[in-house]
């Protein structure tokens, strides 16, 4: 029965399977959504580059059969920015986790959004630092137990869509690993959107986050998403905090236009230097 090729074989490195992610981990499902979004967006595969940082989600780059880069911790966005500026015709996608993108790489995140660098950032949020052993991260809700918050987290976590919008992202959405078709649609839109586009994906981490909080396995987490998720397109991002085991508001929240980093650069330099200035990279980005 197994003689047929897997439909994702052109995009995934099937020779590397089975992958390292735990049973019931949501990262693999997010990768499927991404692979489908690539196909739906219709961008030639040799014009796409995928960049990841460090962490469980950081391993995504290694399983994708495209130009992909596994960078140092927190530095996926600066690497992607350089890649985009050096080769403006590429569609540059960053796929990484909340710990990598928002904690260690948090500064890069807000500044890339502020400048509206034309990259797509897909952040897999599992509410903790998973690969390093399940420590408290900037997305861990109160009062979740992690290795470094044995008595329960007491810090206020980031609301990622609000952070992205406030920093300047032009496209902001949130879904869970259960809402695959909607997630795929958002990823497709983000891939085709010009400017800094951000999609947060809530995903189960049964091995560390769920186990420490006695929340069951990956499937229990999907059931939780099913029961607690509310779709609210265009919701005010200030109201998108995720409280522990409480409702998760999902949808597309922001879709707006702003000049990208390169457009703003070209405009300014043309104003100052006139005809002497040759627009950056020729290809509009």
């Amino acid at each position: 029965m197994n003689e047929a090729a897997h439909p994702m074989e052109s995009i995934l490195r099937m020779d590397r399977m089975p992958h390292i992610w735990c049973p019931g981990c949501g990262i693999g499902t997010v990768v499927t959504a991404f692979a489908m979004a690539l196909q739906q967006a219709g961008i030639p595969l040799d014009k796409i580059a995928v960049v990841s940082g460090i962490g469980c989600s950081g391993r995504v780059a290694g399983y994708i059969k495209l130009d992909s880069f596994h960078t140092t911790h927190g530095r996926a966005i600066p690497f992607a920015t350089g890649l985009k500026l050096a080769n403006p015709e590429l569609t540059v996608v960053v796929i990484s986790g909340d710990g990598d993108l928002i904690a260690i790489g948090g500064n890069h995140f807000i500044h890339a959004a502020r400048r509206n660098v034309d990259i797509k950032v897909f952040c897999i949020n599992n509410f903790n630092y998973a690969m390093t052993g399940g420590q408290l991260g900037p997305t861990t809700p109160e009062p979740a137990i992690t290795t470094t918050s044995p008595y329960g987290a007491f810090e206020n976590p980031f609301n990622l869509p609000f952070l992205a919008e406030g920093s300047g992202a032009v496209y902001v959405a949130r879904w869970t690993a259960l809402h695959i078709r909607r997630l795929t649609k958002s990823m497709t839109e983000a891939l085709l959107k010009k400017g800094f586009s951000f999609v947060e994906i809530i995903a189960p981490c049964p091995t560390l986050y769920s186990r420490r909080n006695r929340l069951g396995d990956g499937l229990d987490e999907l059931r939780h998403y099913h029961d607690k998720s509310v779709i609210k397109h265009g919701a005010d991002t200030r109201e998108l905090d995720i409280s522990y085991r409480d409702k998760i508001v999902m949808g597309k929240f922001v879709d707006r236009e702003r000049p990208t980093f390169v457009e703003a650069l070209d405009k300014r330099f043309t104003e100052v230097f006139g005809k002497k200035y040759e627009p950056y990279g020729k290809v509009a980005t």
Partner: peptide, 12 residues
């Protein structure tokens, strides 16, 4: 097929 995190089931 699309919910499988292991790419281990597909349907034609």
């Amino acid at each position: 097929e699309i919910i499988c995190p292991e790419f281990s089931i597909f349907v034609r």
